[in-house]
Write a protein that binds this DNA or RNA. Structure first.
Length: 463
RNA sequence: GGCUGGGUAGCAAAGUGGUUAUGCUGCGGAUUGCAAAUCCGUCGACGGCGGUUCGAUUCCGCCCUCAGCCUCCA
């Protein structure tokens, strides 16, 4: 039985889909005005693993995964103005760039990636419903605000109390609001800003309403899992609940999942602190699968410290696992049974405990290495299980040689040159000319190429 | 000030009221012309102080300390 830590109750709960034939997952995605950073990569990878595992448990057809794109907001407008381009040009460009990063990280495409600007009518309808029922009010300046005091359960997700929020020194005082904790549903447009027609005048949606509208539209009023980064817990997700439940009269989401932050030097990585690394930058130095391995090697709710040392270790991890798979014809149909398989699923069922699941992969790799010279059939079974299980984590799906010999970019010695030198070395080795043999090996090593001699011959990999 | 979540061996990272996490690293051995890879063995842990218990790293309390949210942020 799958257990998931539900942030609504702050404890692990047995996951029971509303309808096992139609398991529904919604994740808050990117605001597209810049390249994705490693924090975004974490959300993508974490929920990609959740999605893959749900597909394993319930069947691919039975799972619907929605991840939205925020393509209109203040930051987008600001950046478009700075660049002297339309906000549409800007967002289209960064949606395309986002897809490049996703593909590199082996992120399975969600079933739908709704955009705020494509759901304007649904957004307006939900705001209208809230206004009609008295849950929202139109301010003097044309903005529409949600009246937080009318929603009794406000604070249930974030554990906040209205009194504390009002007393908080950091809540900005906005003259247009009746209450500082109220939040905007519809922002009236200033001259020159992108805008849409509404019953309250030209304007654009507030940030939170798009997710309430798009998620209920795509998945129904009540669905299973809603996820996102921990920084979205408050106010974004709290407000989504308030909007959706007030508008539909139904419970909105059963399980709330939030992944932890990526840190740099023990400090949160974020746009506002300007200490972020883009996925693009990191992929210049590390293979995308290494980045994925780095993310999976920590539990999704723990903080993840970004450092070269930790990325290097992730690379070692993948090298070890791929080395075990090297030279073995895996059988994609092998049965998933046995001690290690059970442990893997036990780990995944325990709130997606990927570090524990990775430990199992090492045990299987060890089984492969132990058996490969004495019992190839057993080695094939272990290797095949290893690869199948790794697929649920989105790793180890390339040919081992491809990973082990892959370099980043065109710099350095070519594969042909390497093969040539290896052949030269084999020739002198026939005459036991060890000095020359070692010289060639050292020459290659200086260029980051590691040679491995075995009875079958010489293999190589890039360090 | 209010609210969260952490502090595990050199590093990374799970987990548990009493039994090996795991990976990298270190040390010893096998293998190898020497290496690399692999295998075998091994050193090394649970922030501090109390409490509950036959027994606590694991439960409770207090303290120290770190990070986060309370404003845009994945």
């Amino acid at each position: 039985m799958l257990q998931i830590h539900n942030n609504l109750s702050r404890q692990k709960e047995t996951f029971q889909p509303i309808d096992p034939k139609n398991v529904r997952l919604y994740v808050c995605g990117m605001t597209v005005y810049d390249y994705c950073h490693i924090g975004h990569a974490r959300v993508m990878v974490v929920f990609d693993v959740v999605y893959r595992y749900l597909c394993h448990l319930y069947g691919k057809e039975a799972v619907t995964y929605i991840r939205n794109v925020t393509d209109i907001d203040d930051k987008i407008i600001k950046r478009a103005n700075e660049n002297g381009e339309s906000f549409v040009t800007l967002t289209e460009r960064f949606i395309a760039e986002m897809k490049v990063d996703e593909a590199a990280l082996s992120i399975l495409p969600p079933d739908q990636e709704p955009r705020a600007t494509h759901y304007m009518q649904e957004i307006l309808d939900m705001i209208q419903t809230l206004v009609d029922s008295g849950m929202a009010y139109v301010a003097d300046n044309g903005d529409v605000y949600y009246d937080v005091s009318k929603f009794e359960r406000y604070g249930q997700l974030s554990g906040k109390h209205l009194e504390d929020l009002r007393a908080g020194e950091r809540v900005a005082v906005d003259e247009a609001k009746d209450d500082p904790v109220d939040f905007v549903l519809w922002k009236s447009a200033k001259p020159g800003e992108p805008s849409w027609q509404s019953p309250w005048g030209e304007g654009r949606p507030g940030w939170h309403i798009e997710c309430s509208a798009m998620s209920t539209c795509c998945l129904g009023n009540h669905f299973d899992i809603h996820g996102g980064g921990l920084d979205l817990q408050f106010p974004h997700h709290e407000n989504e609940i308030a909007q959706a439940e007030a508008a539909t009269g139904e419970k909105f989401v059963n399980v709330w999942m939030h992944n932890g932050f990526v840190r740099i030097n023990e400090e949160k990585m974020s746009k506002s602190l300007d200490n972020f690394f883009t996925i693009r930058e990191v992929l210049k130095v590390y293979d995308a699968e290494v980045v994925r391995g780095f993310i999976i090697n920590s539990h999704y709710r723990s903080p993840l410290n970004y450092s070269d040392g930790n990325l290097d270790e992730a690379k070692n991890v993948l090298t070890t696992l791929y080395t075990a798979l090297r030279g073995i014809d895996v059988n994609p149909d092998v049965e998933l049974t046995g001690e290690w398989v059970d442990k893997f699923f036990a780990a995944m069922n325990d709130d997606f405990n990927t570090p524990a699941a990775m430990a199992v992969l090492f045990e299987l790799a060890s089984e492969v290495n132990k058996a490969r010279n004495s019992d190839m059939a057993a080695a094939i079974v272990s290797a095949s299980q290893l690869k199948q299980l790794a697929d649920m984590l989105g790793i180890l799906q390339r040919e081992p040689e491809v990973f082990l010999q892959s370099g980043l970019g065109g710099e350095g010695i070519s594969n042909e040159q390497i093969e040539q030198l290896i052949q030269q070395r084999l020739d002198v080795r026939k005459n036991k000319e060890w000095a020359e043999s070692d010289r060639i090996r050292d020459e290659l090593k200086a260029q980051g190429i590691i040679l491995e001699d075995s009875v079958e011959g010489t293999t190589w990999r890039r360090d």
